[in-house]
Nucleic acid binder design. Structure first.
Lengths: 275, 275
DNA sequence: ACCAATGGTTCTTTAAAAGAACCGAAAGGA
DNA sequence: TCCTTTCGGTTCTTTTAAAGAACCATTGGT
C-alpha cells in the first residue's frame, strides 16, 4: 500500500507535469533510457531498479523492450545493459537534419533569457580563444561581443576557463608569447596567473571582474571532449553592478546545467567543428 | 470492430515477438520514433497516424510525450514534429562508448553468418579501394582477404561499386592510370569498363565472377555520405560454385539491408574515419 | 552450507492506454 | 461566399496492457 502511494507520487513528481495527454509509461521508459549516461553507461537490472526505486519487474520489461529494438544490448557475460546500435539511425537522422550552430544558439538564447545576461561560446584555437557563438542579453545594458573575436588565453573568464585545463607546458607557452595589460585589473605577473589558474581548475569554473573589459564580469566553465581535453568554454557576462552573491550562485548553477547540454551536443557532432 | 482486430494484428506482426515480457505500448512508441528517418525527418500528426494506420489520438499522445522530453520538437509554424535535442545526452553516451570498428564488425559478422560467405568493407582512398574491415565466413572453403589490401577501382565487384558512382572525370583518371589484367575474365577495354559501370550505377550494385580472383564471385553495394558522395562499398564474396540464381537474390537482399545499417553507422561517426 | 545477491518468470489486480466522438481553426474548391 | 475537408488538439468511457507481489534458478561470497 505504501509502495503504491509512493510510486504514484514519484511518477507525478518525476516527469509528467500533470497533463493527461502524455503517456506515463512512455515517459518513464524514456527516463529509464536517460539513465545511461557517460558517467553511468552500463546498468544491471537490479542496480537500475534500486537507483530509480522502482520494482525490478517494471525495469526488466522496459529493458527487454529496448533490447528487442536494439536500443539497448545486454552484455552476455556481465548481463549488464548498455546503449546499442538501434540508436544509430536516429542519431544519423538527427545529425543530418541539424547543424551544430542551429542547435547551440537556441540553447544559449535560453540561458541568456534565464539569466538576463549575454552568453557566448569561446573555442580554443591554438593558443587563442575565438568567440564562435553569441546570444546577447535583451537587457538595454548588456555585454556585447562580436563573433570571431580573438582573445589571449590568460585574460578574462572565458579564456581562463580554457587555459586552466591545459598542460603546464601549454600554459607556459601562452605566457611566453607575451602578456599585455588590458585593464587596470589585468594580471601581469606570470606566477600570479598560474596560481589563479590552479584555483580555477580546482573549482571547475572561472570568475573575473573587469579583467578583459572594465566594468564587466564574466563567469565561465570549460567544455571538454570525450578524451577529457578542453575544447571551449561557455561564458555568461554582464555589467558588474548587476552581479551580487545571490544571483551569482543562481547564474553559476544555470551555467553548469547548460554546459552539460552543450557538451553533449558538441560530442555528437564533430568535436573539431570550429577549428 | 474491424479496426480493433486490425490493430491487434499489426501490433503482433510488427514488433512484439509474442513475448509477454516486453511492453507493447513502449515497443510501439519506439516504432513511432523510428519513423523519423533521413528520408522522412518531419511528420505531421495526421500524416503519421495515416502512415502507421493507427488512431491519431494514440500518435498524438506519444508525440506529446516525446515532446515533453525534448526528444521531438514541434515546429511552431508548420506544426510538424522532428527530432529534438532531448536525445543529445543519450546519443553522446552512445558515441563515446563505441568506436566505429567496434560497431561495424559485429554487424558484418552477422551478415557473414546469415549468408555463410565472407563480408568486407572497402574504403575509397584517392583512386584505390582499401579493405578496412573483414568478417570471414566460417565455411571451410571461403574467400579470404587481408586488412589493408589495396585494389584498383576498375577491377572486381567491391571496386566497381565505388567507381560506378564517381564522376566521369574521376573514372577517366582511374583508367588513365593504367589497366592491368589480373585474371582471364578481367576487363581491359576502357569503353567496355565504362559501359559496365553504367549498368552498375543503374542497378545500384555490382556483381562479378572471377574478375579479380579466379573462382571467386563478389556482390557489392556502395555506401554514400550524407552529401551523396560514395565513400566505400560493402561486399559479400565466396567461391563461384556456391552461388546460383536462387541464393544470389537472398544474398543481395541481405546485402542491401546491411548496407543501410552500416551507412547509418558511418554517418554518425566521422565520415572520413578511414581516409 | 548458508545467505544474499543476481536475472528472469508468473499471475492477479488495477491503473493507464485506447479509441470514438468531439472542437475550433485554417485551408481549399466551387 | 459558403461548404467541405483537413489539420492539431481535447474529452470521456471502455478495454487493454502495465504494475507488482511472489516466485524460481543461479551464482558468488562467507
Amino acid at each position: 500500500m505504501a509502495s503504491i502511494l509512493r510510486r504514484k507520487l514519484e511518477y507525478n513528481l518525476d516527469t509528467n507535469r500533470g497533463n493527461y495527454m502524455t503517456l506515463k509509461s512512455l515517459s518513464f521508459a524514456i527516463d529509464v533510457l536517460s539513465m545511461f549516461t557517460n558517467e553511468n553507461p552500463t546498468w544491471g537490472l537490479r542496480d537500475l531498479s534500486k537507483e530509480m526505486d522502482v520494482n525490478h519487474t517494471i525495469i526488466y520489461r522496459i529493458l527487454k523492450t529496448y533490447e528487442s529494438k536494439n536500443i539497448l544490448v545486454q552484455n552476455t557475460d556481465s548481463k549488464k545493459y548498455e546503449l546499442g546500435p538501434g540508436l544509430a539511425s536516429i542519431l544519423s537522422t538527427y545529425r543530418s537534419k541539424n547543424t551544430l550552430s542551429d542547435l547551440l544558439l537556441p540553447m544559449m538564447e535560453e540561458l541568456s533569457d534565464k539569466t538576463n545576461e549575454s552568453v557566448f561560446l569561446t573555442w580554443k584555437d591554438k593558443l587563442e580563444g575565438v568567440t564562435v557563438e553569441i546570444a546577447e542579453s535583451s537587457n538595454n545594458i548588456r555585454f556585447a561581443v562580436s563573433k570571431g573575436t580573438r582573445t589571449p588565453l590568460y585574460l578574462g573568464a572565458s579564456a581562463k576557463a580554457i587555459m586552466a585545463f591545459l598542460s603546464r607546458e601549454e600554459q607556459n607557452e601562452v605566457i611566453r608569447q607575451g602578456i599585455k595589460k588590458m585593464t587596470a585589473k589585468s594580471m601581469t605577473d606570470s606566477s600570479e596567473i598560474i596560481r589563479d589558474l590552479e584555483k580555477v581548475k580546482d573549482k571547475g569554473w572561472s570568475y573575473t571582474e573587469g579583467e578583459y573589459s572594465d566594468d564587466v564580469f564574466g563567469i565561465s566553465t570549460p567544455i571538454f571532449n570525450t578524451r577529457g581535453e578542453v575544447l571551449a568554454s561557455l561564458t555568461i557576462a554582464g555589467p558588474i553592478y548587476r552581479i551580487n552573491n545571490e544571483n551569482k550562485d543562481r547564474i553559476l548553477a544555470l551555467l553548469i546545467e547548460y554546459t552539460q547540454k552543450i557538451t553533449d551536443l558538441i560530442s555528437i557532432f564533430d568535436e573539431d567543428k570550429y577549428i
